[in-house]
């Protein structure tokens, strides 16, 4: 192809770039700058002269920022692997049945096409301590009712409930992607394996997973980014208090959001901006790390 259609290419890009310049890059740049402002007061559009790194140290020393890091990482590191493994199993199961494949696939996809807040509210009712379905279900196994999302729920219980909701919510997409990835695997690999009378587990381990590895990598990166940005699921399940006890389940985005919402206070908007920039750095680091670590193990 020629290289001289520079200006024409920019012309095609213009609508997207102009909109993004105004509504993405400018606010991003602005947030970056604001994260160094001293005593910024957006209501008056005033600040103290000079730039400072203090906002970052303030954020890092904030109790709830530490709590947010702990929650976000726990959620990401546990829910992402579980949902990937589970959806992989489901996809393999789907692929191995002779009938009703489309039916199951459709059902499993439903969580993807629903309003997150609406379903989250349904989960909150299900996890209700007194008249929730989940406790009722556990009682059939002789488990006494426990508080999952209320004020007396321990951190672990709240995290469990959050994980269940997060995994439920994220399975749909992964199942579909893995299932269609599986159908693209050449049948002869399996036939060869069957001749060698390899066990199903061996086939799964030695053929399915390696052949799907680029897809698994892609899905784990995008899920990781999604999990690090968790916010809506917490709002849906716990409401504005962000936990059974206030802010027990706070995440980095929720932290950013709280300080952003309180922007009328002196300096708070800068703290929110600093928190967001830190999250950006973390996400970037994880994506890079994931790509590097899996480079050896992924079979393209």
């Amino acid at each position: 192809m020629e290289t001289k259609n520079n200006w024409r290419a920019w012309l095609y890009l213009a609508p997207m770039l102009i909109l993004m310049a105004v509504f993405t890059f400018y606010p991003l740049f602005n947030a970056f700058i604001i994260s160094f402002y001293k005593d910024y007061q957006p209501l008056l559009n005033q600040r103290a002269p000079g730039m400072t790194l203090d906002n970052y140290s303030i954020v890092v020393n904030n109790y709830f920022f530490k709590q947010a890091l702990k929650n976000t990482f726990t959620l990401a590191f546990i829910s992402v692997p579980i949902s990937i493994v589970l959806s992989l199993f489901i996809a393999v199961a789907l692929n191995s049945i002779p009938r009703l494949k489309a039916f199951f696939q459709t059902i499993f996809f439903l969580p993807y096409v629903t309003n997150g807040i609406a379903v989250g509210m349904a989960f909150a009712v299900i996890f209700h301590r007194n008249y929730g379905l989940f406790n009722q279900f556990l009682s059939w196994f002789g488990v006494a009712p426990v508080d999952w999302i209320g004020s007396t729920a321990t951190w672990g219980k709240q995290m469990t409930a959050l994980m269940i909701f997060t995994i439920w919510d994220s399975l749909a997409f992964k199942i579909l992607v893995f299932a269609s990835g599986l159908t693209n695997i050449d049948k002869q690999y399996y036939d060869a394996a069957r001749i060698d009378s390899a066990s199903k587990w061996t086939i799964f381990k030695r053929i399915t997973v390696p052949l799907l590895s680029p897809l698994i990598l892609y899905i784990s990166i995008t899920s990781m980014i999604g999990a690090l940005k968790a916010y809506n699921s917490i709002i849906a399940l716990f409401g504005e208090s962000l936990g059974g006890r206030p802010r027990d389940m706070i995440t980095i985005v929720a932290f950013v959001y709280q300080y952003r919402a309180d922007y009328a206070n002196i300096g708070f908007y800068s703290y929110a901006a600093a928190g967001a920039i830190i999250l950006f750095m973390i996400t970037l680091a994880f994506t890079g790390l994931q790509t590097i670590v899996s480079r050896k193990r992924v079979h393209y």
């Binding site: 006890r245 206030p246 206070n265 002196i266 300096g267 708070f268």
Partner: peptide, 26 residues
Amino acid sequence: AKSRSAGSAKARDEAGDCLERIYSKE
């Protein structure tokens, strides 16, 4: 709010949260 301390609204919210934390015994 002042430059290094919160305003009364946040103080109030935190006061309530403080007792809720104590109540939970966690």
